[in-house]
Design a protein around this nucleic acid. Structure first.
Lengths: 252, 252
DNA sequence: ACCTGTGTTTCACTGTGTGAAACAACCCAC
DNA sequence: GTGGGTTGTTTCACACAGTGAAACACAGGT
C-alpha cells in the first residue's frame, strides 16, 4: 500500500519540532533536508491545525499540541496569547508582552516587539521586577489575597534594590490602591529594564483574570514623547482589556 | 501563502480520531467526506508515524500518540503489543490475546483472533476469571507478593463461582507452584468463557514482566483436538516468551 | 439464497506539491 | 559606511503524487 509522501513529510517535521524544541526555518531545512519553500508551507499548515506555532518574540518555530490537550499551564498560555498579541499589534502598532509571576519576578512568555514597526527596546527582558514594572503592578494589584501575600513575601526575601519597596506595607498599599482606582497599571517612570540611554518608554498593563485570580498580565509599551499616558489610555485601554479578556477566555 | 491540502486532510483525520475514539473506515469516510481509498492511504501513513493504530481485535481505527508520550498505561500497552501480536499470529497461525488484571478479573486489551485463520471463539470476552484462565493464572503466579495478595483479596470478595477457589489457600498455592514449575500457565480444562458447545479450546499463557512485576499476560489458544498441550508448548512456547519479552521491552 | 454493508484494489486524470532560483532584509565584521 | 553571509519570503514551470470513481471480494445479517 502506498503512503502519502506529503503527509509523511509533514509528520516528520512535527516529530523534529517535538524533539528539538525551538528551531529556526533554516535549521529545520538543514535537519529535514527539505527545501525552505516546501518547509514553510508545511509549517503554516501545521500552524493552522495547532500542531506548531511561531514564537512572535523569537521568530522560531515551536512544537505545540492542539490547545486543549496541552498540559503545561505556561505553554498553554503562550500558545493562546500569540495570535491575540499579534492581532492587537496590527491595530495599535505599539508592541505588547504577556508575563506571568514566578518566584520573585515577572517572566515574559510572549511579545509582539518584533511585529511592531517601532523598535521600543530590543533586549529580551528576563526577570522583570514586580514593583516598578507595569505588568508586575497589574498582577500584584489584582491578585487574590493569598497570591498577593505570597508575592510580597517573596519580594521581602529579595536582595534586589528594585524589590526593596516591599518592606513598606503602607507604600505598597498606596500603590495597589492607586492602580485599582485607575483601572490599569503604569510603569514607574524611572524604571528601565533595557539600556538606560533610550528614549523614555512608558507602559500600561492590565491583568488576565481567570477564576478571580490574576494569572498573568498584558502590557502595551510606547515611547513617552509620542503621546501622554492619559491620551494613550483613552485611545487603547479598552482594546487592551478586551485582549486580556480574550486571553482569559481562550485559556480557561 | 498556500497550504498543503494533503497534509491538511491528514491532520483533519487525526483530529477526527482524537475526538470520536474508535471509528471504522466507512464511518471515517462519512464524517470526513473523503473517498475510502484516499482515507486508507492517509491512515496507513499516520500509522507509520505512530499517530493512529488499527485495533487487531475490533478492526477499528484508534487515535494514538507516538508511543513515548502516551500517558495512560493500558493504552500504551495496547499500542505496543498490537504489532507484536500480529507478527506472532503470522508465524504461529493460532490467535493470542494480551490481558491485564483489573479489579477482580482479566481485561483483554488486544487480540489477534481476527487475524488468525482459525475461528477459535468469536465472542469478545470481557471480564475473564483469574483462577481458571491461562492469562489469569500467569499473572497470579508471577505477580509480586504485594500484587498477589491484592488479587486474592479481591477474589475472596467476589460472589462468582469461578473465583471461589481463592478461599482455599492450599489449593491456590499448589496451582501457583505447578504453574511456576511448568514455566507457563494453562487454562483449566473445564473453563469456557465462550459458547459451551464449541470444540474444546486449550490455552497457554506467560506473564509480561516489567521491573519484577507481572503487568500483563499473553496467551496462545488452539483447539485441543489438533495438538496436545505438550506438543504445542514445545512448538510455540519459546516464541510466546519472546513476544512477552518484546512487549515488556517496548513498554518500559 | 439474497442483499447491504464492509474493506481492499486498480486506474486514468489533473491538480497539487515540489525545489531551484531570484528576491529582500537583516546582522555582523571589517 | 560597505561588503559578505546570513536569514526569511516569493515566484514559477514541471513532473509526479495524490485523488476519487468504480469495480472487486468478503463478510454478516434477514
Amino acid at each position: 500500500m502506498k503512503r502519502i509522501e506529503s503527509l509523511r513529510r509533514g509528520l516528520q517535521v512535527m516529530q523534529l519540532l517535538r524533539d528539538e524544541a525551538p528551531l529556526s526555518l533554516a535549521a529545520l531545512a538543514r535537519r529535514s533536508g527539505l527545501a525552505k519553500a516546501t518547509l514553510l508551507r508545511i509549517l503554516v499548515t501545521l500552524e493552522d491545525s495547532g500542531h506548531a506555532r511561531r514564537g512572535l518574540g523569537d521568530g522560531l518555530w515551536h512544537a505545540a499540541g492542539p490547545v486543549a490537550e496541552e498540559t503545561d499551564p505556561d505553554r498553554r498560555l503562550t500558545q493562546v496569547c500569540g495570535p491575540l498579541l499579534d492581532q492587537l499589534c496590527q491595530k495599535v502598532l505599539w508592541p505588547s508582552d504577556v508575563g506571568v509571576y514566578h518566584g520573585g519576578s515577572i517572566r515574559v512568555l510572549e511579545t509582539s516587539r518584533r511585529v511592531s514597526p517601532f523598535l521600543v527596546n530590543r533586549v529580551v527582558n528576563y526577570g522583570i521586577h514586580v514593583l516598578p514594572s507595569a505588568m508586575g503592578r497589574a498582577v500584584l494589584a489584582w491578585a487574590s489575597d493569598a497570591d498577593r501575600a505570597q508575592i510580597l513575601a517573596d519580594l521581602r526575601n529579595s536582595a534586589e534594590p528594585h524589590d526593596r519597596l516591599a518592606a513598606h506595607p503602607d507604600k505598597v498599599e498606596e500603590l495597589i490602591g492607586d492602580t485599582r482606582a485607575r483601572g490599569y497599571a503604569v510603569r514607574h517612570p524611572g524604571y528601565f529594564v533595557t539600556v538606560p540611554r533610550e528614549a523614555l518608554v512608558s507602559a500600561i498593563a492590565v491583568p488576565v483574570m481567570v477564576q478571580e485570580r490574576a494569572i498573568a498580565a498584558v502590557n502595551l509599551s510606547w515611547v513617552a514623547s509620542a503621546q501622554s499616558e492619559a491620551d494613550f489610555a483613552t485611545a487603547h485601554l479598552e482594546r487592551l482589556q478586551q485582549v486580556a479578556a480574550d486571553i482569559a477566555r481562550a485559556y480557561a
